[in-house]
């Protein structure tokens, strides 16, 4: 971390001219550099650790795990760019995976379609609540999460007929790889998706609209933007991406239970925040989120490698998120300040 220890001074011309100022300005404009440095440090640490060996197998395993988190966090990024938050992503993930597995014996395409439909439905409800009825996103998605848990539990007891089965296509996509096991199949899904989101946020009218709504909702409305349509679309997209991530997770673990996605809620928010997207909206992007998801995944595998016990892992995990967010706030001159 090259964050200055003193309170960040306003970048005056003379400060920019000095070496430290130039570094700070670079970091302010490209915070992703800090993340990439950290990422490389983590990889180096893995290589140097006694049992560590950075090779193609290691890369495949990490990319495979990171893809799930990164796709989930993609939805979260879009929502956060508009100044919202979605706390129901993990529940959507679980529900999509569970519904797909429960219907697996009745045709693969139908099962996958049903799973994805769960995502669309939840997204629609979230979106209508936030965009039309103006419920705070935190409360809307929190409430929706509880509804999903309840409905899914009842469904698991009463609605499931036939033997649960993970569709072959989903399993191959989630846990298979090709070219001698170097490239996981789910990268084939993640890479185009990431490209689309990166390009769309930068170049499409809708992408720019997300930043505009997140930056100043009122100004957008006065400028004639139909803010509710933007918000509705974003929540539907987020829930849909969560459902996709749920299917990948289903294929990865090859089994579904009612708590499948629970551990993914906090990392999805953490990946976005580490990646430099402001929780107040309008600032950030998907590039940072991708690196954030990679960092969290590599960190997790490194801690597993070092055989660190769960308690220490959690403490470290939390500390690192906090330190990164703190450093990021400092480096970027306190954009997160209200």
């Amino acid at each position: 971390m090259s964050a200055p220890q003193v309170a960040a001074p306003p970048p005056s011309r003379s400060a920019v001219a000095s070496g430290a100022g130039r570094v700070q300005r670079l970091l302010t404009e490209r915070p992703i550099i800090v993340l990439l440095v950290l990422f490389v440090v983590l990889i180096a640490a893995t290589e140097l650790s006694p049992d560590g060996d950075v090779n193609t197998g290691w890369a495949r395993a990490n990319v495979q795990a990171a893809a799930i988190l990164a796709i989930l966090a993609a939805g979260q990024t879009l929502v956060m760019l508009t100044g919202g938050i979605d706390l129901s992503v993990a529940n959507v993930m679980t529900a999509a995976a569970y519904v797909t597995a429960a219907n697996g014996s009745g045709g693969e395409a139908r099962a996958v379609a049903l799973g994805l439909a769960v995502g669309l439905l939840v997204g629609l409800v979230n979106g209508v609540g936030v965009a039309v009825f103006r419920v705070q996103p935190l409360i809307m998605t929190l409430g929706m999460g509880a509804v999903i848990v309840g409905v899914l539990t009842v469904y698991s007891q009463q609605g499931v007929s036939g033997t649960p089965l993970v569709p072959d296509a989903v399993r191959d996509l989630g846990s298979g790889s090709f070219l001698d096991g170097t490239i996981p199949y789910n990268l084939l899904l993640w890479a185009p998706l990431a490209g689309l989101i990166l390009y769309g946020l930068r170049a499409s009218g809708f992408g720019r609209m997300l930043y505009a709504v997140g930056d100043n909702e009122r100004a957008c409305r006065l400028a004639g933007v139909r803010v509710w349509q933007v918000q509705l679309t974003v929540y539907v997209l987020c829930a849909f991406l969560s459902a996709v991530a749920g299917l990948l997770l289903l294929g990865y673990t090859n089994a579904a239970d009612l708590e499948l996605g629970n551990n993914y809620l906090l990392p999805s928010v953490a990946a976005v925040v580490i990646g430099g997207t402001s929780i107040f909206g309008g600032v950030g992007g998907y590039g940072g989120t991708i690196v954030g998801a990679l960092i969290l995944t590599v960190l997790g595998s490194l801690l597993t490698l070092l055989d660190v016990e769960e308690a220490i892992r959690q403490v470290l995990y939390g500390t690192i998120i906090l330190v990164l967010a703190w450093a990021y706030t400092r480096v970027s001159g306190g954009t997160a300040d209200r």
């Binding site: 220490i312 967010a325 706030t329």
Partner: peptide, 26 residues
């Protein structure tokens, strides 16, 4: 931590929830 870091409170306490959870396990 919330006031000194000026990081949004939801993020700080989210990160701290990992830390406290780990402490409880310790």
């Amino acid at each position: 931590l919330v006031t000194a870091s000026r990081v949004p409170d939801i993020i700080v306490t989210l990160a701290m929830s990992f830390v406290w959870g780990g402490v409880a396990l310790l």
